[in-house]
């Protein structure tokens, strides 16, 4: 059994939150740069140029990339030979989240759903974090993190199709979701698609799909081909950067597919804005 100190987890989480608040990941930066070069609309090209300049300023001066610094979302794989010494892993992740958001002058954006009261002084600064745990073999903890903004989350949707809908039905559905969203989710976006499983499995898969590096290739060749097809279709919609018209509405489409019930074909579409702040550490 390997022991990991509670405080070490707190510090590691705090550090990745601080880093992601101000430093756009390299895969996102590179994808935006390529999109700027290929974009045909001069207006959208200028918008992407501003997005890249913004990333440079944020990194150099340690300023938040966006005023919407998101809810903190984690996918955590816990090795079965790991023991946290001094507290619960979940508490350590929440404590690290609070410290990171406070120390980075990031915005506290969690609130009570109906009164809309901010939770910073009651539950904690930008708490609770959204944490998905998985148990795996080994003596390490693997933490994937993303800051998830509200504008792009607001346009996301899920639906359970009959099996006959097939790939074509899914492609049409994704086009409909992105078309209706227009410029509101801050394109150029990343589109996460969860297919199969149950209703909630599809939704969680669509979220996790957004954590994959932009530019990486799906290990499943069939899904890789479907990702390319949907990307081409979405970019034909003409929405462009910030909805101003253009050829680069999406930077990438990521699919996670799961086995499902013989009666159903669940599909979830989760959208991430151009400020795709995500990272990955192993403790």
């Amino acid at each position: 059994m390997r022991e990991i100190a509670y405080e070490d987890v707190v510090k590691a989480v705090r550090d990745i939150i601080l880093h992601c608040g101000t430093d756009l990941p390299q895969d996102t930066y590179d994808a935006l740069k390529e999109a700027m070069e290929k974009e045909k609309s001069p207006v959208s090209k200028e918008v992407i140029r501003q997005i890249l300049e913004n990333a440079d300023i944020a990194k150099d001066e340690k300023r938040p990339l966006c005023q919407d610094t998101g809810l903190a979302v984690f996918f955590v794989k816990v090795g079965d030979e790991v023991k946290i010494k001094g507290g619960l892993l979940k508490d350590a992740i929440n404590e690290g989240t609070e410290q990171g958001y406070k120390d980075g002058y990031l915005r506290a954006s969690t609130c009570e759903p109906f009164t809309r009261a901010n939770l910073k002084d009651t539950v904690g600064y930008n708490l609770p974090a959204i944490i998905h745990f998985d148990l795996v073999a080994g003596d390490k903890i693997d933490i994937e993190y993303a800051a998830k903004g509200g504008g792009s989350e607001n346009v996301s949707r899920a639906r359970v199709f009959p099996p006959a809908a097939g790939k074509e039905g899914i492609i049409e559905y994704v086009k409909e979701v992105i078309s209706d969203a227009g410029g509101n989710p801050c394109p150029p976006i990343t589109v996460g698609i969860g297919i199969g499983g149950t209703f909630e499995k599809a939704a969680i898969s669509s979220k996790h799909a957004l954590f994959r590096d932009i530019g990486s290739v799906n290990e499943d060749p069939e899904m890789a081909e479907m990702e390319q097809t949907i990307l081409d279709e979405v970019n034909k919609l003409g929405i462009g950067a910030m909805g101003m018209g253009g050829t680069k509405t999406a930077l990438a489409v990521h699919i996670e597919s799961n086995p499902c019930h013989i009666a159903s074909l669940p599909v979830s579409v989760n959208v991430q804005c151009h400020s795709s702040r995500h990272t990955h550490i192993t403790i």
Binding site: I51, C66, G149, M242
Partner: peptide
């Protein structure tokens, strides 16, 4: 007018 969403650091300056 539209300002670039997500360019908070640039616009803040």
């Amino acid at each position: 007018f539209g300002a670039t969403g997500g360019a908070g650091a640039l616009l803040g300056k």
